[in-house]
Design a protein around this nucleic acid. Structure first.
Lengths: 216, 216
DNA sequence: CTATTAGTGGACACGGTGTTCACGATACGC
DNA sequence: GCGTATCGTGAACACCGTGTCCACTAATAG
């Protein structure tokens, strides 16, 4: 039924792993998760993918792990880097990109479920932290460091803190749904933080309306 | 075994609900949740509390609901209001109080598990939002509104956004554990936000030494 | 061809859920 | 005190999902 792979790479003996069934399982995971609103069961996964339960157990430790692999694989390219852009613009775009990812792609809903599952699964938590959260944080942190080097940002900026202030509200609203999570939120977060972290007075490209700003 | 209640209030006929068993169940829930690191099963709950499973099912829809009731009942008094304090001091103390609640009481661990459980339980999510998150947000929002009235804060402050910026990083670090969650975090968050939201120049009582120190 | 690995499908024990039932326990109004 | 209504108990039950096992078939490298 599954005849796609060519066992390229290491010349391992034996029947090669079928990429068709692997992708069918990953697709089934995201589909069911989005439809059902929660992490699907292994049974449902196998049925939907037209695959034996045994196969899933062979390659993944849990249904949440399948879901995580699907998420990470689909959206690992969703981070752009533009070192040529001004720091403030680049950071704003990163935050906007995450907000858009959460609201306009399945990533938001999946992430919400995976974050919940990670509370009782240490390995899943570590994987999401290392492969989802950290890369996006690092990208912003790099831009901030660039700003410090350029002298447009204060030298004593607590980068981790600023990254938290920019990102945490997005995740918080994704989880609790107590306030809208839209594109404007990203820009407003940057506007709120920038006066404090910018070096002295008028700084780089205010991105938005220059409403009587005033730094410390 | 259980003879505590007096059925005071409405003169309802029949045997009154035993407060002793109710509290035993709530205690068992928090104890097991803290020990096990996840929401306990109804079976474990009943065994630990020395109570029949049927009794639990009669009063709560799920184990998470029991846990939520225990959390909300124990910590609903943990919000102080000091309208006499300067706005910045009052807000800082609110954020510090939440940070301390998360790290130095069982509330943090319980909240982490309940937040996870709420992803697949709409009623639990609504209850936590209304009875845990909202009251604490409202308290800070009131202080901010007071500052706007007094003229110490800008009139165009987005209160919801500021509250998110102050609180979200705490919840975010509680969940992901990617950065330390200590008392200093609360003060640093306020320091980061205040220059932007304060009305014009030098503002109300900087609470602490006037420097947001530390680079990463 | 043989060796080796992948995928199948059925079986199993295990544990937790949520419900039902009959029974005893404890309060109220009279 | 007595009836009645409600509470708490303990046992049973079907149901579902998990995780593991096994014998079998399928596909590929050498």
């Amino acid at each position: 039924m599954n005849t796609v792979s060519t066992n390229r790479g290491a010349g391992k003996p034996g029947r090669p792993r079928s990429q068709a069934t692997r992708l069918a399982i990953l697709d089934a995971a995201t589909d069911l998760a989005l439809a059902g609103g929660c992490v699907p069961t292994i049974d449902a996964l196998a049925t939907r993918a037209g695959v034996s339960r045994t196969t899933i157990y062979k390659w993944w430790p849990s249904a949440a792990a399948v879901l995580a692999e699907g998420l990470l694989e689909r959206f690992h390219e969703s981070i752009e880097f533009d070192d040529s852009l001004p720091v403030r613009t680049a950071v704003t775009r990163q935050v906007e990109a995450l907000a858009r990812l959460m609201t306009q792609t399945p990533a938001g809903a999946l992430l919400r479920q995976l974050q919940a599952a990670s509370a009782s699964d240490e390995r899943l938590s570590a994987a999401l932290l290392a492969r989802w959260l950290a890369p996006r944080r690092d990208r912003v942190a790099e831009h901030l460091a660039r700003g410090i080097d350029q002298g447009t940002l204060r030298a004593d900026v607590d980068v981790d803190l600023v990254v938290d202030v920019l990102f945490a509200p997005l995740y918080h609203r994704l989880v609790w749904g107590h306030a809208p999570l839209d594109d404007a939120l990203a820009r407003r977060l940057c506007d709120l933080v920038w006066p404090t972290i910018a070096a002295d007075v008028s700084e780089t490209t205010p991105t938005s309306h220059p409403s009587s700003r005033r730094a410390s």
